[in-house]
Write a protein that binds this DNA or RNA. Structure first.
Lengths: 151, 151
DNA sequence: CCTATTTAGTTGTATCTACAAAGGTTGCAG
DNA sequence: CTGCAACCTTTGTAGATACAACTAAATAGG
């Protein structure tokens, strides 16, 4: 017994609206340590994935390569990460500096507070269900993109 | 029997990642009629909510007032909508022009194709569940914002 | 009436986002 | 070795997003 046979409204609209709300929520907390939500996400990925090529990082974050180039710039200017030479002359490697690790640790505390507050506001059940669903959707769209269905 | 007692990962990250993917999907379809996903959303709201004040429209869309001011500009320049005088000298009214109604109708066809394709890619069950959850979350965060709990 | 506060909208500034195109690099075919 | 295709990243351009500060106008007190 379905809720409705056809989805009501626009998936994109709802995603973006909630996205704006949640992003504002996180940014409010992250601002205490001088980070944007996006910068914390990027820094965390760089810390975890070690020296990594921009293109690979962009793919992991489901982000356009040119967007990544742009997002790296303010963070490199802050000295939080470094975009060095890769194997080839045409590839590069991104890695976090000591300052980057430090601020990421600070950011993690702010992030935890933000996530806890959000869990509180939405209810744990809701957040768990949302995470599962978002993960499923991301995986679905991702596998089609990389076209790995055939082998 | 829960999936886990604490949510794994970052709600904001997942939302933004899926948001980027889905926005790209819609923009791909909307580009056929020369609209961005955001512009279609904005235009639809203006068409539906009739002449409306910028502030009210921003609240409806969970968007900062200054963001709305900026987003209106390219659309007004295209002649799709008009920002006219309101009751007071300090308030204004936004409404769609004839050209706005026309392109919104075209956009609607593109939107339908995009939504159908997304339903296909994610599966109807998944989209329905996602819509319900997004609506619930938006409503939760919204009621706290408007602080309507006390009376 | 006049000032203080609140309200409505815009501007300054900074970042995020992505498509199209450009600039080099690598690798392969001939 | 030469030329061309494929690859990796950055630039050009345009729009989305929001906080802080600003302008202007309505409103409340006195």
């Amino acid at each position: 017994m379905k809720n409705a046979s056809k989805p009501q409204g626009c998936t994109n609209l709802k995603l973006r609206q909630l996205g704006r709300m949640v992003t504002r929520h996180y940014d409010h907390y992250m601002s205490e340590v001088g980070l944007k939500n996006t910068q914390y996400a990027l820094l965390s990925h760089v810390v975890k994935l070690g020296p990594i090529r921009p293109g690979d990082l962009a793919k992991r974050m489901q982000m356009d390569a040119s967007t990544l180039t742009r997002n790296l710039q303010p963070m490199a200017a802050q000295g939080w990460l470094r975009v060095g030479a890769g194997e080839n002359a045409r590839s590069r490697l991104v890695e976090a500096t000591a300052a980057g690790h430090a601020i990421r640790a600070e950011g993690q505390r702010a992030w935890k507070a933000a996530q806890l507050a959000l869990n509180e506001r939405l209810g744990m059940e809701c957040v768990l269900a949302l995470h599962d669903l978002l993960d499923t959707c991301i995986a679905s769209l991702d596998e089609e993109t990389s076209d790995a269905t055939t082998h």
